[in-house]
């Protein structure tokens, strides 16, 4: 609680300036990053979402296994032909089964893995908000002299009956 209101106002201006600089930096970074992907970038993006057929949890992009190399060839050829990401994924799914996709489909029963965390997040934040809203007027805890006497007795037992001065009121 700064005693100087002038400093407070200054700091608000500083915060607005910081926010503007940050937004500008982010916008610049995103703008520079956009633009059409090269075939290689597209293939890499697709491959990172595919499971290497002979590995446990490694993507086609990361794996050096021969099965992964085979999938990479398929992806590269189909990207070159101009197929969409969905078409390529559908083809590979029909050939290798649905477990080749590292992202579970957002349709059908597998949507559960996508929906549950979002519901949990919304519910959790909502619950937290409700919790604070309902506790906006906290009940003051009344401390009776008996409570204090109890604590003092317990403390003095521990400390070999040190005479304790009366504590100031809350």
């Amino acid at each position: 609680m700064s005693p100087d209101p002038g400093a407070r106002a200054g700091s608000r201006v500083v915060w607005v300036a910081l926010a503007l600089v940050l937004v500008a930096a982010l916008a610049f970074s995103v703008a520079r990053n956009s633009g059409p992907l090269t075939e290689k970038q597209r293939a890499a993006a697709i491959e990172s979402n595919l499971k290497c057929p002979s590995c446990e949890a490694i993507s086609v992009l990361d794996s050096s296994a021969s099965t992964a190399a085979a999938v990479r060839q398929v992806v590269a050829a189909r990207v070159h032909e101009g197929q969409s990401d969905q078409q390529i994924e559908q083809y590979l799914e029909s050939r290798y089964g649905p477990s080749i996709l590292l992202r579970p489909p957002t349709t059908g029963i597998t949507a559960v893995v996508w929906v549950v965390p979002v519901v949990a997040a919304v519910g959790g934040l909502g619950g937290l908000g409700l919790f604070f809203w309902r506790r906006r007027r906290p009940k003051a805890v009344r401390v009776t002299p008996e409570d204090r006497a109890l604590v003092d007795r317990a403390l003095s037992q521990r400390q070999g009956d040190v005479a304790l001065p009366a504590p100031p009121g809350p």
């Binding site: 949890a57 993507s59 089964g97 649905p98 477990s99 579970p104 489909p105």
Partner: peptide, 14 residues
């Protein structure tokens, strides 16, 4: 479901 599904790095990352 007697079927296989993979939940991999792209899911967890996202």
């Amino acid at each position: 479901e007697h079927n296989q599904v993979t939940v991999g790095a792209p899911y967890f990352d996202a």
